[in-house]
Design a protein around this nucleic acid. Structure first.
Length: 566
RNA sequence: CGGAGCGUGGCGCAGUCUGGAAGCGCGCCUGCUUUGGGAGCAGGAGGUCGAAGGUUCAAAUCCUUUCGCUCCGACCA
């Protein structure tokens, strides 16, 4: 492709909307343009990258035995009401009505439509397992779209759904998909980690996330260097030391603590470390109120709390409960609330809690004596520096971008939607399901978050919009002729090459080549006529090479081949 | 949803307080010069000042309403 014939509107200045490197560079390199909040158009160069990622995904999934389908964007409300998610999903779904007042939503995901597709005809155990995938645009009314393609309202996603007659079969497909995902992200040239994850609102049992490592990532991952344990902070466990410095328990008595409603304030007022304070948080679930207790030094983990209580509708109760005063809550006494305590709380010898009346706390509260929780479990967040739950190592925290997520769904959807199969004895059972997602457009952005410098993008070769960019400097007719020869030779050899044949000044061409991030840059100018040597720069390492023209094709092919075989 | 801020040419911004001819830089078009890391000179095109209503002789500027966008927060009760 000649650069004079392709539309690449680059920007010299950083657009104000851009908060993060991938967002800025995608805009500046003329790859995407914003249409509305969280909604983007892809320009020719940007779309080429999307297609490269899609292609790698297709190849690896076909290898894993998945079949490509294409499901609709517009879903009838009935399907979602059947699964119960019409209300459960809440405002995340964009809902609309047609002229006859029929209700629809724009698919934020496709479990319902997929299950519906197979439930009437896929009836026998002999037809299982099956694994279907599609690459589709999803629409989710995110609370706050941001960071360009990283959290968009409309985005491209590869989703896959598998159906099984037994758990062993699901396990096997799950493993195949796990492997396929590893191949996909490796082939995309990305540094990623697989981590244990929380299943969240999707439901199900096992779940793993694929995280591209990048400082700007929205997710935190804890991992252990010695045994390889890795988990999302939403789920991670850890080994923690108990109350270290022993403080003798004081007499139980109420203390006047005017206006002290925070743990930080209480630490100062009482001159005690957080391990001696009870942090009490009031939660409202679907039916009940809960008082969740963790140590003052710990963070409550809402995901763990939801999992423990089996209630996905939990949220912090902002309206309060009866006449219990905000900021002075405690687990003890006759308040009528269900108390859920963290395991570590029960190991505290004593502590200070709110007195359940304004401006007072109580010291000398002993777990198990002064209060007995209705439920005990791990409801705190693990942290950097704590012990690995599997070995003697230490957990480290890193930032990542979630680009893939696989779940063992089980029978959540097949039960609610009556997707049954008949076994050898003619008996009906709900199919066992798995589901597997990859954020295609997010992967593109994540690749940039991980691979860029102050001058622009550094595309990993396999997903770069072009492999080689040829710069022609000056107006010399001979330089132009030589450039054309090189361009034709490489093109003919199957190299994806873009030729900057524009009448721009050298500075513009060099800077834009850096910005666009094409992996190899070949420069042809007056110097070439003088020395007969071509200059090649590897954009990734910013290393330069000098070559005779006769060596060029072999050198380039070697370079491209080596990278591809990694 | 709570808080803060911003809407002025394709992009980045000034002008708004104190009403009185819509400006600057980048980009774009034409010409000449220049040509190895975002050129120089000269000329030029392009704007319902987010929208609606109001005040006024006069509104980008003041008032009211509304729409859009961005950032922070939404676990320390």
């Amino acid at each position: 492709m000649k650069m004079s014939q392709i539309y690449i509107p680059t920007l010299k200045e950083k657009p104000t909307e851009a908060e993060t490197p991938s967002h800025e560079l995608l805009l500046r390199a003329g790859m995407i343009r914003r249409v509305a909040a969280g909604i983007y158009s892809f320009l020719p160069l940007g779309y080429r990258v999307v297609r490269r990622v899609e292609q790698i995904i297709r190849e690896e999934l076909e290898k894993a035995g998945a079949q490509e389908v294409h499901l609709p964007l517009l879903h009838p409300a009935e399907l979602w009401k059947e699964s119960g998610r019409w209300d459960e999903m809440g405002d995340l779904m964009v809902k609309l009505k047609d002229r006859r007042d029929r209700e629809y939503c724009i698919g934020p995901t496709h479990e319902e439509v997929m299950t519906d597709l197979i439930r009437y005809e896929l009836k026998s155990y002999k037809d299982l397992p099956q694994n279907f995938y599609q690459i589709q645009t999803k629409v989710r009314d995110e609370i706050r779209p941001r960071f360009g393609l990283l959290r968009a309202k409309e985005f491209s996603m590869k989703d896959a759904y598998s159906f099984h007659a037994n758990w062993e079969s699901l396990d096997a497909t799950y493993q195949d998909m796990h492997k396929a995902y590893c191949s996909i992200f490796q082939r995309c040239g990305l540094d990623y980690r697989v981590v244990e994850a929380d299943t969240g609102p999707m439901g199900g049992t096992d779940s793993h996330e694929f995280m591209v490592l990048a400082e700007t990532g929205e997710d935190s991952v804890l991992f252990c260097d010695s045994c390889g344990y890795a988990a999302n902070v939403e789920k991670a466990q850890s080994k923690v030391s108990k109350q270290e410095e022993k403080i003798a328990p004081p007499e139980k008595e109420e203390i006047y603590t005017p206006g002290v409603t925070t743990i930080e304030g209480l630490e100062k007022t009482m001159d005690l470390p957080g391990e001696y304070l009870f942090k009490s948080l009031l939660y409202r679930g679907e039916k009940d109120y809960y008082l969740a207790i963790v140590r003052g030094s710990d963070q409550l983990n809402e995901n763990k709390l939801m999992a423990l209580l089996g209630d996905p509708h939990l949220h912090l109760a902002e309206e309060g409960y009866k006449n219990l005063p905000a900021g002075f809550l405690g687990p003890q006494g006759d308040h009528g609330l269900k108390v859920v305590a963290d395991e570590l709380v029960m190991e505290m010898e004593w502590g200070v809690a709110g007195a359940n009346r304004v401006d007072y706390h109580v010291q000398g509260i002993i777990p198990g004596e002064d209060f007995s929780p209705d439920m005990i479990g791990d409801i705190r967040s693990a942290r950097h520096g704590e012990g690995c739950p599997r070995c003697e190592g230490t957990l480290e925290e890193i930032r990542g971008i979630e680009v893939g997520h696989i779940f063992k769904l089980g029978t959540k959807y097949s039960e609610s939607m009556n997707a049954h199969y008949l076994d050898e004895n003619g008996k009906a059972f709900p199919m066992i399901m798995g589901c597997y997602g990859i954020g295609v457009t997010r992967t593109v952005a994540a690749a940039i978050e991980q691979n860029h410098d102050e001058n622009g993008i550094k595309w990993p070769l396999p997903i770069a919009p072009y492999q080689v960019i040829l710069l022609t400097l000056g107006k010399d007719e001979k330089v132009n002729e030589e450039s054309e020869k090189i361009y034709e030779e490489l093109k003919k050899a199957g190299v994806e090459i873009i030729w900057d044949d524009r009448p721009e000044r050298p500075g513009v061409k060099f800077n834009e080549a850096d910005l666009l991030g094409i992996p190899l840059r070949i420069t042809v100018g007056r110097k070439y006529l003088e020395t007969g040597q071509l200059e090649i720069r590897d954009r990734y390492n910013n290393e330069d090479y000098l070559l005779e023209k006769s060596q060029l094709l072999t050198w380039v092919q070697d370079y491209l081949g080596e990278e591809e075989s990694i």
